[in-house]
C-alpha cells in the first residue's frame, strides 16, 4: 500500500485589503501554518505526524517551532514557495515512508491571492478522492496551488468576495509593526528563553493537567494539582481552542503597556486584554487581536490563536491571543 492523500484544509485570514485576504500584523507564515493545521484538525492538535514538508518562506522559528507545537520531534523538508517548490514537495511526500503521516504545509503572507496557508496530509489512510493539481503557471504560488487542489474536492471554501470587515490596522501600521523585526527590547524582568520554551506545551498547545483525584484542571501546568496538591495522578488534557467566555475585559491605552509591547503600541496603538474562562473552569489572560480595543466585551465567547507577541533576545516570541468568534 502506498502513501496517499488523506485530507487537508486551508486557512484564510479574516480581513481583506484591496480585495485580497491579508494577514494581520501579528501573523506570519509560521502562525498561519499552525492555523491551517488547527483548521484541519478541527481545533485538535494532531500528534501522529512524523514529517513536515514546508513550502514557502518561513521564519526561523519554524525550524524548531513545529516540533514544539506538535509536541514531538518531526523531520522538516524545505521547499520554495513557487510552483516548482510545490511540485518538489509533492514528490517528497509521495516518496515518504507509508507510516506515520506526513504534512505538507504551504503558506504565504502576501501572495497573488493574498495571505493564505494550506495543509495537506499524506499517509496510509487514503481519502476517497484525491485533489486534482492544476497545471501551474509562472504566477502560481505553492499555497494557491494547494488551495486549488483542495477546492477541487470541496475542501477549500472559495476566497471571500464583497466587503471585508474593517481591520483594526492599516497596511502602513502593519508594516511598521513588522519593521521592529528582531529588536532587542529586553529590559530585565522578562521571560528568559529557557522559561519560555519550558512553558510551550501550555502556551502554544493549551495543555494542562487533569487531576486523577479531584478531576480539576491545572492550567498552566504546575507539576501538581493546584486544588488538591496531588502530583502523581496527573494526566495531560488539552483545552479547546474556541469558546472561552470573557469574564473581564480591559483596553490598554498608550503608556499602560509593559515595555516589550512598546514597538506594537507605537505601530498599532493600544490593545484589548481579556480574562477568559474555559468550560473546565480554567481562566487565562489573553491579549485580544483581530479586534479594536474595547470590541470584545464581558460575556463574549472568544477563540485562541497562536500569534506573534514581541521580539525578545533576537527572535519573535509567540503565544495565544484571543480573537472574536463569529456569532
Amino acid at each position: 500500500m502506498s502513501t496517499g492523500f488523506e485530507g487537508g484544509a486551508v486557512y484564510t485570514p479574516r480581513f481583506r485589503v484591496g480585495g485580497k485576504p491579508a494577514a494581520a500584523p501579528d501573523e506570519d507564515t509560521f502562525t498561519m501554518a499552525v492555523e491551517a493545521v488547527e483548521t484541519f484538525a478541527a481545533g485538535e492538535v494532531p500528534s501522529e505526524t512524523a514529517r513536515v514538508e514546508l513550502v514557502g518562506e518561513f521564519a526561523a522559528v519554524a525550524d524548531w517551532g513545529l516540533s514544539a507545537y506538535l509536541g514531538k520531534p518531526v523531520e522538516l523538508g524545505r521547499h520554495a514557495g513557487s510552483a516548482v517548490g510545490f511540485a518538489a514537495a509533492l514528490r517528497a511526500v509521495e516518496s515518504a515512508p507509508n507510516e506515520p503521516s506526513t504534512l505538507l504545509i504551504a503558506a504565504e503572507r502576501a501572495g497573488p491571492l493574498g495571505g493564505q496557508a494550506a495543509v495537506l496530509r499524506f499517509g496510509p489512510h487514503r481519502a476517497p478522492r484525491a485533489p486534482e493539481w492544476s497545471q501551474p503557471t509562472d504566477h502560481d504560488s505553492a499555497a494557491s496551488l494547494a488551495r486549488a487542489g483542495l477546492a477541487s474536492i470541496g475542501l477549500a471554501p472559495a476566497l471571500p468576495t464583497g466587503a471585508s470587515p474593517t481591520p483594526p490596522w492599516t497596511p502602513e501600521t502593519a508594516a511598521a509593526f513588522d519593521a521592529v523585526g528582531s529588536l532587542q527590547v529586553s529590559e530585565g524582568a522578562y521571560v528568559p528563553r529557557p522559561r519560555y520554551l519550558e512553558n510551550l506545551p501550555s502556551r502554544w498547545r493549551l495543555e494542562g493537567d487533569r487531576c486523577g483525584r479531584c478531576d480539576r484542571v491545572t492550567f498552566p501546568r504546575r507539576a501538581r494539582c493546584r486544588f488538591c496538591g496531588l502530583s502523581d495522578r496527573l494526566s495531560t488534557m488539552t483545552l479547546p481552542r474556541d469558546g472561552a467566555r470573557v469574564i473581564a475585559a480591559t483596553a490598554i491605552g498608550k503608556g499602560g503597556q509593559p515595555t516589550e509591547f512598546d514597538p506594537q503600541v507605537g505601530a498599532l496603538g493600544g490593545y484589548g486584554v481579556v480574562l477568559a474562562e474555559f468550560d473546565a473552569g480554567v481562566r487565562l489572560t489573553l491579549q485580544v487581536t483581530d479586534a479594536a480595543p474595547g470590541e470584545v466585551k464581558i460575556g463574549d465567547r472568544v477563540g485562541t490563536r497562536l500569534r506573534r507577541l514581541y521580539p525578545m533576545e533576537g527572535e519573535w516570541r509567540y503565544g495565544r491571543k484571543a480573537v472574536p468568534l463569529p456569532e
Binding site: 521571560v191 498552566p220 490598554i252 503597556q257 509593559p258 490593545y271 486584554v273 489572560t285 491579549q287 503565544g319
Partner: peptide, 20 residues
C-alpha cells in the same frame, strides 16, 4: 510568564478587576 505576556502591567490587571 503569563499575565505580562498578555500585555498587562498592574494597571492592566486592576483594569480587568475594575471591569468585572
Amino acid at each position: 510568564e503569563w499575565e505580562r505576556a498578555a500585555g498587562l502591567t498592574f494597571a492592566g490587571v486592576y483594569g480587568l478587576i475594575a471591569a468585572e
